[in-house]
Write a protein that binds this DNA or RNA. Structure first.
Lengths: 194, 194
DNA sequence: CTCCTCCTCCCCTTTTATAGGGAAAATACA
DNA sequence: TGTATTTTCCCTATAAAAGGGGAGGAGGAG
């Protein structure tokens, strides 16, 4: 029932691609952490200190670095390796990857590909919040602190914290901005525009 | 002190590139409107009803459609035409464009290129958030902590806190959910869901 | 009757955020 | 060339949140 965080490393020099990819994937919950590296050397260093679940890299960045890439792969057997293809590329290189993301892939397709390598995500994505949890969420989005929410709902602050823990567990969203967007998207609160 | 809006059309099939490009450019102010078209036919139709200041397209999408492209160009002489290059491409094609954006361009470089075709740059209003403040806000809405934002922007955590103080002062909004809604309402971050 | 969810409450420690102060350097503007 | 804004950095202190536990009662489903 617990949702594991996914750590995704994106390797490549393109701001556009990095921004695009992270922006698309952020929508599916903030249980994804991104790490950006410019090249395979940086990726190597990163993977020493962070357990990367999914590494996405431009195959172009490992041309002439094939041996280094294979070494890194074998060092981190639990990592999934995806190629982000936006140019013509050697088929041999591509075979080294677990899957390919094409620059022309739709948002949904991209997420599905990522999703396939994130086994523990499948069990529960959309558990509905209980009434009390929604009450807390609404007041949270209004900017009240835990203590203020406790006062408003006439319960102890510990209970509020408990509800928040459960909300975080169910939605996989731990940040306030993320919860705000969740609440808006799920029409728990309306977004009034002037 | 009115700001002219810029209408930018992005033509191409890649979600990643569209998201990346819009995401980068959103930061520089909400005076940019984006229009997305999948191919040059759609762009043609779009330009009948909307005055497009800048058209960004993948040169690959006009291969074998060169004549159509040139016709469209000559029909809209006030539009700037930029190529978004992420693959090997015929140099002849490229010469038809006013400028090139490479997939490896940095955020700043991309904005400079766009900026060059936006004559009314000088009348930018400064009564709202500064660029850096927007940078902080965007990362804040993504759920990063002050420390993480500091790391992302390569500044000290004290600076991040300073920016946050100024954001709170300027907007009068102190809560994260409030700032999230502010950012969405002011198109500092996009909220596009299914 | 048992299992499960919900709601309620409490403990602990560590990490972050808030709020007040200040200040120097770099840009931008007029 | 001044002046204002922006960007950067720092201090102290307090408040709040995060993350890890656990636990009892109410009520519904099987």
């Amino acid at each position: 029932m617990k949702k594991n965080r996914i750590n995704i490393a994106v390797t490549g020099e393109s701001d556009i691609i990095y921004e695009g990819l992270t922006n698309i994937l952020y929508r599916y919950g903030d249980y994804i952490s991104f790490y950006r590296t410019e090249n395979i050397d940086e990726l190597d260093i990163l993977m020493i200190r962070v357990k990367i679940n999914i590494a996405i890299l431009n195959p172009g960045s490992i041309i002439n670095r094939n041996r280094q890439f294979l070494k890194l792969r074998s060092k981190h057997k639990n990592t999934s390796w995806l190629a982000l293809v936006y140019s013509f590329i050697d088929t041999k290189l591509i075979n080294e990857f677990d899957d390919l993301i094409y620059i022309t892939d739709t948002n949904d397709l991209i997420f599905k590909k990522i999703d396939r390598f994130h086994s523990s995500k499948t069990d529960k994505v959309r558990d509905d919040l209980s009434k009390r949890e929604k009450d807390v969420l609404i007041l949270l989005v209004r900017g009240l602190s835990n203590k203020e929410i406790a006062g408003e709902l006439n319960i102890s602050i510990h209970t509020v914290i408990s509800h928040r823990k459960n909300i975080a567990e169910k939605t996989g969203i731990r940040s306030l901005p993320g919860l705000t967007i969740y609440a808006i998207s799920n029409k728990i609160i309306p977004l009034n525009r002037e």
